[in-house]
Write a protein that binds this DNA or RNA. Structure first.
Length: 878
RNA sequence: GGGCGGGUAGCUCAGUUGGGAGAGCGUCGGCCUUACAAGCCGAAGGUCACAGGUUCAAUCCCUGUUCCGCCUACCA
């Protein structure tokens, strides 16, 4: 503790190891004394690396868990990772490609083994990064979504929902990613607007002259057209409904039909219908019993139904078709048009609406429960504005496509009987078909959406479907802390699954924090090169500074804008704490805090003031944490630590330490430092532990298990604190005069005070050494109220005092006059407002009497100050 | 198309029951005052986007306008 600056690296490692060795983060499910408090971690991808979003998310969780742990709760933070089906498969496939092989070369089983090996090798990375951040997870309980226990939970849930008819298999238009070769859910599609074209194409009548013109943004899909649709009320077309047209190029005959969904205003009012490649078209096709023609394969390559275009990529096909249509005279017009394009959120490939057989969850009935739980307040969404978003989505929820055509994930527990075609869905692998007893069963090759298993996370991690002690004790959890971007993906699904299988909400509170962006508010991305890497930041400034920066910027419902520079700023704060610690420790060496009894101690005004301010801070910080106002908590702690404790109290303690009051002062220094460290510990765990360990009279082996400070009514002295405030005002007044009139600090000043009241004069007199020390004053004189003012003085007026600083030979009189005039100008403006307000009968009549009194007091104070300043200026004239 | 959030000091942002506009950084001036120059002391800087309304009183509540973000959507 002698170092001039705080060096985080070694200290962080040392204490984290210590905490782990002591098992402080382990929650005991058999502890029936402490009330439980539980959080489940949003599981990061097992192949992932820590990014700023993780850092923010886990810092906030760690703050809550550490706070509650200190505050006497049996605190469980359940950690784990997610198998991240598509993402992980992509990563491993890339690695295979680098080795010149592929998953198809390996085959399914060998590939899955390969992924597990990958996970063995790289899966600890993000866990270790979380530890580096200081996350106090109960690592003894770490889970992985592909673990045996969690896989059992997945099977049980799948089978149950299937048996209840809530999971079904069906042909449907899904979002198909031609690169991932898989269906993805609606949520996994990113919508963007792109500039494209609207093509107008003629379809000639099969019989007789004439034609119908349609408008389309995707001409290549006409290869799969099975009709033209018009609105039944559209008079332009009533005569042609029922007729047939010739599909250009392929020369198939297709009918013209009428359907009310067609918008008369759009394009020509006639639309081509491609049921296999558009959701609307598919549904329309069902209504009219239309043929369905799939025109491309799983990679987006045109198939045998595409005639001359077979083998072409879908976009190449579009270009070629346009040429052909043009050449053959079918293309009438091509105009620029903004088209909505869906892209795969994993690989940004343009999604193809694609007809295929998939597994779905009928989410409507589950959503109803999830809506009710929030309506009834069983789960509270914070900040509240997200409730509306949640309801909006839940009310309009659509069937959830849960099957994925990849290999890495929970394989769907369904088997098809080769004998009779029966579908068997079962928790145990069946040996034979229960229907026809055939032994040739083929398991479904699809795996489940990763979010299917994540949806079970709050209870599957606690051992479900077993009825464990852990579940009993810690479910429902207290709060889920996560980014708003996965409100639908994850939170909503946990709500549905938790209510369905546990009959209880998974968490009482959901705190949704904002996303981390760069300084300019841009999303961080590799391509933009604006990534701030948490590990690099921690290397440079330490985990504590990094955590404090994140917390201080985590205002509710706002983006968290962060940059290297801002994190750097908070390192100064950590260093300030370090130095305050050094000062206090140096001054309480050999001191036993038990030698002072706070109940009998004779506290100085400064002691009383800092203790009272400490109480206010404790209260404010606790409230802020309870309400998830993390930035408020950080701000209060910053202000108190730096600007009250360090700037004022430590300075005030210096003169006291040379007097008979030294023992009490030492006790206060010790007590306030200890409290500050404990208050700050959830936010900055490392530096607080390091200093705390050097404190005498600490209870317990670690700050991790120390009691979180409470408001102490016995150490609350509002009266004395107020008096101290007057002294602080005087010191500030003298300093201000010195600063503004450029009197060097080396010049000792003589100060004359004229106090409003005798009592305060007495207090100031007793504690005059504070003023002498902190304002560099040689002598303090008092003159009574009514006595003539000293001449040729600079003046500062506070609420209770006039502070005269003689400036004979020290200062430019004109400058001082100017200074006073400026101050007066400001005050006059303010006073004008007050006078107006107080002469308004409406205000006096209707406003709260307390407010009126307050306003009157402010007015009088202003008048007092102004009058004194005026007199002072007059004296300078003469 | 629907929804949400935002426009406050040069920059980034606080401002929770409507009642004298705040912080950090930056800027300017002065300081090695025995924990800290990664520091200390002082100072400057704002018609709280715009226009109405409610109220004794509006940065705060309501309406409209405008600009910027985000989410959502089956308008070919």
């Amino acid at each position: 503790m002698r170092d001039r600056e705080y060096n985080p690296t070694d200290i962080e490692r040392k204490w984290y190891d210590f905490w782990m060795d002591e098992h402080y983060f382990h929650a005991d499910e058999n502890d029936d004394v402490k009330p439980p408090y539980a959080i489940v971690i949003p599981p990061p991808n097992v192949t992932g690396v820590l990014h700023m979003g993780h850092a923010l998310n886990n810092t906030l969780q760690d703050i809550m868990i550490r706070y509650k742990r200190m505050d006497g709760f049996n605190a469980l933070w359940m950690p784990g990772t997610d198998h991240a089906g598509i993402a992980t498969q992509n990563v491993v496939e890339k690695a295979l490609a680098a080795k010149g092989t592929s998953r198809h070369d390996l085959g399914r089983e060998a590939f899955i083994d390969e992924v597990w090996r990958w996970r063995e090798k790289h899966g600890d990375l993000i866990i270790n990064q979380l530890k580096r951040l200081g996350a106090s997870c109960d690592w003894e309980r770490i889970r992985f979504t592909m673990d045996e226990g969690l896989s059992n939970a997945v099977r049980k849930v799948f089978v149950t929902l299937y048996q209840e008819g809530l999971i079904f298999r069906s042909d449907y238009i899904v979002n198909w990613c031609p690169r991932c070769h898989s269906a993805i859910s609606d949520l996994e599609v990113e919508h963007e607007e792109e500039s494209g074209f609207l093509w107008h194409i003629r379809y000639p009548f099969a019989e007789g002259e004439g034609e119908i013109v349609v408008a389309t943004t995707r001409p290549e899909t006409m290869l799969g057209d099975t009709c033209i649709a018009v609105n039944p009320t559209d008079e332009r077309y009533t005569s042609v409904v029922g007729k047939e047209v010739i599909l250009p190029i392929l020369n198939r005959k297709i009918p013209i039909i009428a359907d009310p969904v067609v918008d008369k205003e759009f394009g020509t009012g006639a639309v081509k219908i491609t049921p296999a490649h558009d959701l609307n078209d598919y549904e329309l096709g069902l209504r009219h019993g239309l043929d369905v023609i799939v025109i491309m394969d799983e990679s987006g390559i045109m198939n045998e139904n595409a005639g001359p275009y077979q083998g072409m990529d879908r976009f190449a096909c579009r270009t070629k078709m346009e040429e052909d249509l043009q050449e053959q005279g079918y293309l009438i017009d091509k105009t620029p048009y903004t088209v909505p394009v869906g892209k795969c959120y994993r690989c940004k490939t343009v999604i193809e609406p694609y007809l295929s057989k998939q597994w779905f969850v009928n989410t409507k009935p589950l959503a109803e429960e999830a809506i009710r739980a929030v309506k009834e307040g069983r789960t509270r969404i914070v900040p509240k504005q997200w409730e509306k978003t949640y309801y909006e989505w839940m009310y309009n929820i659509r069937d959830w496509c849960i099957s994925r055509q990849i290999w890495w994930g929970h394989r769907i527990p369904a088997w098809y009987c080769e004998g009779c075609g029966e579908v068997i869905v079962s928790e145990e692998d069946p040996a034979s078909c229960p229907h026809c007893e055939s032994g040739t069963l083929r398991q479904e090759t699809d795996v489940l959406d990763t979010w299917f298993s994540s949806g079970l996370w709050p209870f599957s991690t606690m051992g479900w479907p077993e009825q464990t002690r852990t579940l009993e004790k810690f479910y429902p959890t207290n709060v889920l802390i996560t980014g708003f971007d996965i409100l639908f993906f994850w939170v909503a699904r946990m709500m549905m699954m938790g209510l369905k299988f546990m009959n209880e909400v998974p968490f009482h509170d959901v705190y949704l924090h904002a996303l981390v962006r760069d300084e300019q508010g841009q999303k961080m991305s590799k391509s933009k090169g604006n990534i701030v890497d948490p590990i690099i930041e921690m290397d440079k400034y330490g985990a504590d500074a990094f955590r404090f920066a994140l917390t201080a910027f985590a205002a509710m419902g706002r983006d968290v804008r962060i940059s290297d520079k801002r994190i750097q700023g908070y390192r100064f704060f950590i260093n300030k704490i370090w130095n305050a610690g050094k000062f206090v420790l140096a001054n309480i060496e050999g001191f036993d805090p038990r030698s002072v009894s706070p109940a009998e101690a004779d506290f100085s005004l400064a002691d009383a003031w800092i203790l009272t301010e400490l109480n206010k801070t404790v209260e404010a910080v606790r409230t802020a944490l309870e309400e998830y106002r993390f930035n408020d908590a950080a701000d209060r702690l910053y202000q108190f630590t730096w600007h009250q404790f360090c700037d004022w109290y430590i300075e005030l303690s210096k003169p006291l330490l040379n007097t008979g009051a030294a023992p009490v002062t030492r006790w206060v220094l010790w007590h306030v430092l200890k409290s500050v460290l404990e208050l700050l510990h959830p936010v900055i765990p490392f530096v607080t532990e390091e200093i705390w360990q050097h404190l005498p009279g600490r209870e317990g082996k670690s700050i991790v298990t120390a009691a979180y400070p409470k408001v102490d009514a016995d150490l609350d002295f509002p009266e004395k604190a107020r008096e101290m405030g007057y002294i602080i005002d005087i010191i500030t007044g003298v300093r201000s005069i010195r600063g503004e009139t450029n009197i060097p600090p080396s010049t000792q000043l003589d100060v004359v005070l004229r106090m409003k009241s005798k009592e305060i004069e007495a207090a100031v007199d007793i504690y005059g050494f504070f003023v002498r020390d902190l304002a560099r004053v040689r002598s303090i004189g008092f003159i009574p109220e009514g006595a003539p003012r000293p001449k040729r003085c600079a003046l500062a007026v506070t609420a209770e005092a006039e502070v005269y600083v003689p400036l004979e030979g020290v200062i430019d009189i004109d400058k001082e006059k100017e200074r006073l005039s400026k101050q007066m100008g400001k005050m006059e403006k303010e006073l004008e407002g007050k006078r107006k307000k107080l002469s308004n009968p409406g205000f006096l009549q209707k406003a709260n009497p307390e407010v009126v009194a307050e306003q009157r007091q402010i007015k009088e104070e202003l008048e007092f100050k102004l009058e004194r300043l005026l007199k002072a200026r007059e004296l300078l004239e003469g």
